[in-house]
Design a binder for these strands. Structure first.
Lengths: 193, 193
DNA sequence: GGAGTAAGTGAATATTTACTAACATACTAA
DNA sequence: TTAGTATGTTAGTAAATATTCACTTACTCC
């Protein structure tokens, strides 16, 4: 499960290519060019193209998991909610070349194993967000008019669309600002009157 | 811009393949097999693969536009909101093989022209939903705590995610029921207390 | 100094891709 | 009847694909 520095370089190159030219552009040839090496050199570090994608998704899942794990637990649900998304937007602003991999679903159906890795990635986020929402509802800060699952769905959908829009705008607007704005809108909506 | 019956058959076959095997499965060979004729016969009806995808997206855009255009204008915003989504869910329940094409973004970045067709399709939906939301806000039925654009974003994101979930569940749950549920959740959230 | 290894190369592989050319047949209109 | 058009076929094409091969370097460790 551990990753060598060279493997990480390749993963980042793959992310860049995905962003620049989409799924169809992610070929071994392009990857080798980006790495400034021959195509066969890739196979010194990964045994297949699928392996590269899987490694990328797993790396991202680990990464997100770690980053979201150290949220100050003394915060209020509303503050946690904000902090959680702020952390997400901060990461992707720093590493926009991973947005396509995570949010575009473009990798879906490339292979069964990739599908599973993608779903796992999705679940990591749910794992962290869910308890925040529940706590907020229990404390009567967030609305109880709809269920936790329904709230989760609305929040996740809104977030996913936000990242999608950023990507098709070629990352040209400030995701931190419009992300914070989005978070504020949602909070306004789900907070108890 | 008009489409022959045979072209429509091909478009539907393409939708089926997209659903069954994803973007990478949509090849001329598979398309010909699905149509039960030779690969070259495809080129009697479309001049390129890209043309097929574009035709499919345009057909869908036209279709949605027409279906949403005859909404009874005497309805209340809330009723219109419900009717609009009900119509969408009804259509896709009848034609699930178009879900992948419309909601998965998998076609994104295949080509510039396809990108534009996809965005056009997205805008058709916005065109119809936007005035409903605005009317509801003006009449004080929907909340004015956040802007129309912010509301639109949340609704679109939630809807998109709903369709995405349906697809990765292999269309095995009742989209009408869970869609109605989703609409109800959103309405609860955006209605003025 | 020699053995082992990590990381590179260039050439070749079989397969798949979108697309084309040449030819066949049936229906339709003059 | 005959010319044209629509729609199909078989048999190709060149380019791109992921992967493998035998081989070279360069570095480390005993």
């Amino acid at each position: 499960m551990d990753i060598t520095p060279r493997q990480l370089e390749i993963i980042e190159a793959a992310g860049k290519i995905l962003t620049a030219s989409g799924v169809s552009g992610l070929t071994i040839k392009n990857l080798a060019k980006e790495m400034q090496f021959s195509e066969s050199a890739i196979y010194r570090h990964f045994k297949s193209k699928e392996d590269i994608i899987i490694a990328m998704l797993n790396y991202l899942a680990d990464n997100i998991d770690k980053r979201l794990a150290n949220l100050d637990s003394s915060l209020t649900p509303e503050e946690k909610f904000k902090a959680l998304f702020a952390e997400q937007f901060r990461f992707f602003k720093l590493n926009p070349h991973f947005v396509v991999a995570v949010f575009s679903d473009g990798l879906m159906e490339e292979s069964q194993v990739i599908n599973e890795a993608l779903l796992k990635l999705m679940n990591v986020k749910i794992k962290h967000l869910m308890p925040v929402i529940m706590e907020g509802q229990q404390k009567g800060i967030f609305t109880n008019a709809i269920t936790t699952d329904e709230l989760m769905h609305i929040i996740m959908g809104t977030f996913k669309l936000q990242m999608f829009k950023w990507r098709i705008a070629n990352f040209e607007f400030d995701i931190k600002r419009s992300g914070d704005n989005m978070v504020q809108s949602i909070l306004t909506l789900i907070k108890k009157a």
